[in-house]
Design a protein around this nucleic acid. Sequence first.
DNA 1: TCAATATGTAAATGACTTGTAAATAATAAC
DNA 2: GTTATTATTTACAAGTCATTTACATATTGA
Lengths: 226, 226
Amino acid sequence: MRILLAEDDADLAANVADYLRALGHEVTPVASGRTALRRAVEESSELLILDRMLPGLDGAELCRRLRRDHGRQTPVIMLTALGSTEDKVAGFEAGADDYLVKPFSLVELRLRIEALARRALPPVEEALQVADLSYHPRRLQAQRAGKPLALNPTTRKLLEHLMRASPAVVPRAELEHLLWANEAPQEDVLRMHMSNLRGAVDKPFRRKLLHTVHGVGYRLADEGGT
Amino acid sequence: MRILLAEDDADLAANVADYLRALGHEVTPVASGRTALRRAVEESSELLILDRMLPGLDGAELCRRLRRDHGRQTPVIMLTALGSTEDKVAGFEAGADDYLVKPFSLVELRLRIEALARRALPPVEEALQVADLSYHPRRLQAQRAGKPLALNPTTRKLLEHLMRASPAVVPRAELEHLLWANEAPQEDVLRMHMSNLRGAVDKPFRRKLLHTVHGVGYRLADEGGT
DNA sequence: TCAATATGTAAATGACTTGTAAATAATAAC
DNA sequence: GTTATTATTTACAAGTCATTTACATATTGA
């Protein structure tokens, strides 16, 4: 499993990372909150282990932004020295799935990861598929009919979101929120990016996958068959 | 949420049950392990809260049998006074999703239930069906005989409403209210939209589903009878 | 039956939404 | 710093939709 470990205590981070790697996981340790958020979003890790207290952006706020601004449901285990009920409330309300109080046993961490993995990772997501279109969150690369598509960061985010939602319609407002959180630029910028995405995904192909639902938003799906 | 609570300490069970009921859950308390297993299987609870030490059949064994013998993936929170790492290992290996050591705070229990519910209850996409006509609210798309229908926002709303009401007659006034609340345009605009809807739903097909009830309204159903 | 009323459909209009291209500004890479 | 890539703005063409108008057809009840 690809695990992002955000922990600024270097000794603890090394211990945890070594232990998890020995279990066969792929661990990326980072020491700052901002870096953690960026990498969690870009590399779409399968599990986040976050220290509650992090320089730059604390674990709870990181988790909240990940869920709210980026729409990610990546499972989160909060790791912290703060063990009061209030602290736990804050952790869970930020969207954490589990909350482990230091000092904790590595075995218990393993157990909780396994329990979470059973629930949170239905298919070990290697690639998203819609018809002959596929997207690999790890490689940040999309293909259609075997040919790689040229995507920029914005069109990539849109594609990933639309594929995860497929075959449901995604309202324009949701896509705008995905890209710009609250601070959206002019209204019709999204149209631009959708046009670009269409150019990459549909233009060279006969069968169109990206459909407009007038007055609502967009749907990515293979029409006719379902 | 329907919760089965297996706890032989009557005071604790009452406390937990009261608290969860106050949150709007439906709680069934049982005191023995065998009863718990039977009811968990028969009544298909949505969440199990199990004491680790139960008369008859302990919580871990109960959980294991539920998973192995009955194939149930119902989420389980283990509740126990045994806090050693070995005990936790045993609990998780039996298939528990979370493990709470007594004494625990009710708030923390609530938080862990919520975190688990987010993961364990996948959203289901329902479709409305009338004869060979189907409508998927999330896709905002209707199909008949497998072929997608071209609908605009107005005809979509009408179709959804008629399908939910099917096979009952929906009075014109109700449809008008659905579309324009109180400020309806001219009286015969609805006729227009119904005509469009008919063009999409019935025109290309032999068997007609959309029927007019003179002086009353419209009914969407197979055949004329009810 | 006949006429009054209800309903169906087609075409046209105008408001609004969406698609795309080209130009400019902002960022990131080097 | 300079260049390449990306994001946003601007402008306009094309498409879609709700409504209106007009007239044909169907149903009802006397």
